[in-house]
Design a protein around this nucleic acid. Structure first.
Lengths: 210, 210
DNA sequence: CTCCTGAAGTTGACAGTGACAACATTGACG
DNA sequence: CGTCAATGTTGTCACTGTCAACTTCAGGAG
């Protein structure tokens, strides 16, 4: 009769979502290796194997967690390019937003290292995110958000059109490389001031070379 | 009496080296996660726990394997800059070697993905390689090899001296980012021709922006 | 030569993990 | 009211890292 029985109901109701939530929390604290079935079920107050009703195996749970992390990255990028001070000159404005996008990427990597590593730890069995997965509020993923900025740079005449094709590869590589070197790699222990310098140098490279 | 007893001698003789060799083989085939104590001891024909006489724990073995992988990267980079056709113009020559270094880095990542991932999978407990570790024949690591190329670019006047400080961060990030995106990341399934285009675009970015 | 000591390797055990099979519960639908 | 399929549980197995206790063996003290 009571709406909420004293003990947990046998059927959880939204176990799948709850497990992904738990996985996201694990990933945030410890990275993708910590996304472990038993830890997720334990955190959800459910038995070891309950997860197998919703995920074929650990990789399938991890994949869902990775997608959430990629979305978190896209969301921060969207947020940071929505805000920046608008300049009367459209060329300056396009550069400011482009710069802000790169900063957002590295900001995410350094402030949420566990999520960042997880976003790119998609199990090898699954190739990449399907369309509509790992996206932000606009429905675009990090790669598409970058493409939109590059398109704008061409539109306002900030860069010549013939340099547009595949420019994503170049900009993305530079910013992604810095992020991983700072996160997992040999740069993980440099002081904060040096990090800022590294970010500046990398963004300068991209702006000058794109 | 006989020099070589029929069954394996109780004392292996060079077990530590043999275990690292086994770990390197595992890393090559499957990446750092596959560097597993029991697999290494099994491959060496020795019991589970024999490794604990030479390594405090799995991380210590993995660290030794990572160092070997980093050395392999350094060795390929050395090899590729030793060979390139020498141009009479020292400026052209410096650019050719610089370009060859970047290509070698990405070549290593794509031809030996397991080793590449392992080289940067140094356990979090150890911060980075001590001096003299992870180096090539010249005694320099990948980072130092890059620095030497940048120094040369300045010396021959190919780039102004005021752009030299921290230029490693920029060049390294671009090439490392491409390597990881091609290896683990969303670019891992693009066709070979597209890979080449991506490499060209990234190297152009670095050459123009450095 | 004998004996002993410590380094190197082995055996046995335990906890944590992913995964499978068989069983229990429950809500929805006839 | 009865059935059944979805959902959750229990039991079990293989594999891993790690610890403790045991065994083998090489080399030096006497």
């Amino acid at each position: 009769m009571s709406v909420a029985p004293s003990s947990r109901p046998y059927h959880h109701g939204r176990l799948r979502e709850a497990l992904v939530d738990a996985g996201v929390a694990l990933a945030r604290a410890e990275g993708p290796e910590a996304v472990v079935l038993r830890a997720a079920t334990r955190a959800t107050g459910v038995s070891n194997n309950a997860a197998y009703r919703h995920f074929a195996d650990r990789d399938e749970l991890l994949r869902a967690v990775c997608e959430r992390c990629m979305s978190a990255l896209a969301l921060l990028m969207e947020k940071r390019i929505a805000a920046p001070p608008v300049d009367p000159d459209p060329v300056v404005d396009a550069w400011v937003r482009f710069d802000a996008l790169g900063r957002a990427y590295v900001e995410f990597a350094t402030t949420e290292p566990g999520w960042f590593r997880t976003a790119f730890a998609v199990p090898r069995t699954t190739h990449s995110f399907a369309p509509g997965e790992g996206v932000g509020a606009s429905g675009l993923g990090p790669y598409q958000l970058l493409g939109a900025r590059l398109d704008e740079l061409v539109e306002v005449g900030a860069i010549p059109a013939e340099r547009r094709p595949r420019a994503e590869y170049a900009a993305w590589s530079a910013v992604h490389g810095l992020s991983t070197l700072l996160n997992d790699g040999p740069l993980r222990d440099i002081p904060a001031a040096e990090r800022d310098q590294a970010l500046r140098v990398v963004l300068d490279l991209v702006a000058r070379g794109i």
